[in-house]
Design a binder for these strands. Structure first.
Lengths: 358, 358
DNA sequence: GTCAAAATTTGAACCGATCCAACGAAAGTG
DNA sequence: CACTTTCGTTGGATCGGTTCAAATTTTGAC
């Protein structure tokens, strides 16, 4: 039976070994922090004492207070912690954040919670030098909490128009425009939109007017982008069905049941996320609707899964890696200058889009 | 231009607002920590002062020292930080660890580093109550460092026989036996093994004797399990080719080139990880070798990707979620009793295994 | 109006280190 | 040998809070 820890408690502090070795605590500290300035004989004596007493090295809790810097950045989300490991978009983003952190030697603390009370506490007590906030769903409470910590923070993919928070995002309108134009140029005329959530209201068919009032500006802007571009191709956007999903399989399938239940099914689907698009691909396959033969579909985000789906997904790729890199940079070299950065997006044409059926 | 932080520096401490509000710092502390015991009038006064001075709440750095508990667990690995988000096995494990943490309100700190010098420092200075150590590749240095911190720690999937470290693992021998027996019972007679790394030596064909000397006991035990079971079916294991991979596409493909380059290609492949098996599936598809028509393959780990591959992968599933849960529990309720737990594995039969061709 | 009980507030001690000005001893200089 | 450097060591101050026993104020009862 090897116990989890060597002893029962660990009341052995630097001061204890200093006393045991017969030196001042200042010298004992130096033995660990700057060994080269301590005479060898003394150094060995202190080290021996530390060894003998089972001292685990200077406790970072103590050092921290003095040093001020934690050397770690917190990544916060309103979702459960496992979101970081489950969601494709989050994973790519986290991978790039972690690379940036590795490069600078900074650590990462995941901050989240099952309930919002806990979340507030976790943010208030996170030992970090700053926050990167994932507020995918316009969770302004999260931004508010981060702001209250008075630490540097950057919002990622911010679904809010609040100009006072530092944020790194993309031009949703332009990106959506790219997707719409691509399909319009292929001569599609009958469209449908699978939307991201507008509010916390669940899923179901919705209207342009309702999306305009959406809580989440990302959803709203993507729709604006789609419709502005479609209009310029003389498509009557008031006839384009919009189905609000909650970005999961169930709501996407319900949306497609609804959309393809009508008399004139679309030949082109604009999906506001790759996740939606990938679920849609599954539904279409199960209903023997050929992609892109019968229906074309364009996603949004550019997650890696889109490259290996069947068929590979045409999508609007966000510069996810670059966003992560910039976010880390903004926190670590916080010069207080960053406000809002809008990064360009890219249309990645793969095999899920083609001309409409003849 | 919204600056990243409100002011330049933040020299405003609890003591400052206490003075401003004309109360003792003890009372000021109570206002934040136990508001209910402070008279309302005073409470409001202090809060107002805090607000006015831009106080961001009690600094956790200070509290920490007194409280002792960080309320976060560190997850350490020798791989780069992005491993947590890239590797399928790590992701599932992390998802279950994070669920367990969410349930108890604990945070997660990712501890890793690009180089090993940095890693040592990061472990020494991690602000955590304990470590969960991913030492997938027998990195005993990692265990050593964790041990030196004198904090509770648990090794996951430990590739080492060191009986003195607390660890949660699986019975590799039994698990491998399950895989081998499954294929043998389907009447396969010609096998090949795609192995995990034995040492840091790269990849290539290897032998049973070499694997027996492997640095990594996981690799060794899985081979032992395979061969023990195959032998009991009167299969001459000395004729079974073993190819050591590094768990990536390139080495797996090289292994298959090698294995299928021979005169009598196998009808059954034992892959020591799902990742290997999934890469193998790709190779087999590209070479028009039917699975399981021409060749059956069984993986190891039970990652979710295996369930949706083409064909779905038969595999030996580790109870990943349970392992994560137990690891967190072991750290948080550290009663010093855990030593080594070997959890049972499950054979999950899906469509990548069937009878050999007639 | 007096006194004990209850409710608040205070201030010193402490958490575990690092930092730094000052000091003593050894080494170097003229 | 007196005097300046250099090297190592010391111990007090500090980081930013929390805690608790003691002091003080309020409240309630008679």
């Amino acid at each position: 039976m090897a116990p989890l820890t060597s002893g029962k408690t660990r009341p052995v502090r630097l001061a204890d070994i200093a006393k045991a070795a017969g030196v001042s605590h200042g010298t004992a500290s130096n033995v660990f922090a700057r060994p080269e300035i301590v005479r060898e004989e003394v150094r060995e004596r202190v080290k021996a004492a530390a060894e003998a007493m089972g001292y685990g090295g200077p406790d970072p809790k103590g050092r921290l207070l003095r040093a001020g810097k934690v050397n770690a950045i917190g990544v916060a989300t309103g979702e459960p912690l496992s979101y970081f490991f489950d969601d494709p978009f989050a994973r790519v983003m986290m991978a790039s954040i972690s690379q940036a952190c590795d490069a600078t030697g900074a650590g990462i603390s995941l901050v989240s919670a099952a309930n919002s009370e806990q979340l507030a506490w976790n943010i208030q007590s996170a030992l970090v030098d700053g926050f990167i906030v994932f507020c995918m769903e316009g969770d302004s409470r999260l931004v508010q909490l981060a702001r209250e910590r008075k630490l540097p923070f950057v919002a990622l993919d911010l679904d809010s128009d609040d100009q006072t928070v530092a944020a790194i995002g993309i031009d949703n309108i332009a990106g959506a425009g790219l997707a719409a134009r691509h399909l319009a140029e292929l001569r599609h005329r009958r469209f449908a939109v699978l939307a991201l959530p507008c509010a916390d209201a669940g899923f179901g068919p919705t209207t342009q007017a309702q999306v305009e009032m959406a809580l989440y500006s990302g959803t709203r802007d993507r729709l604006r982008g789609y419709f502005a571009e479609l209009s310029s191709f003389d498509i009557d956007v008031s006839l384009v069905p919009i189905y609000e999903t909650v970005n999961d399989e169930k709501s996407v399938w319900a949306g497609l049941d609804h959309i393809f239940g009508g008399a004139e099914p679309p030949t082109a689907i604009l999906a506001m996320s790759d996740r939606i698009a990938l679920h849609a691909l599954d539904w279409l396959r199960q209903h023997d609707i050929a992609v892109p033969g019968d229906v074309s579909i364009v996603g949004f985000d550019g997650v890696p899964e889109g490259a290996i789906s069947e068929p590979p997904l045409t999508t609007v790729a966000q510069p996810i890696a670059e966003m992560g890199r910039r976010a880390v940079k903004a926190i670590l070299e916080n010069d207080g200058s960053l406000s809002r950065q809008l990064l360009p997006v890219d249309l990645v044409v793969r095999a899920s889009s083609g001309p409409p059926p003849a």
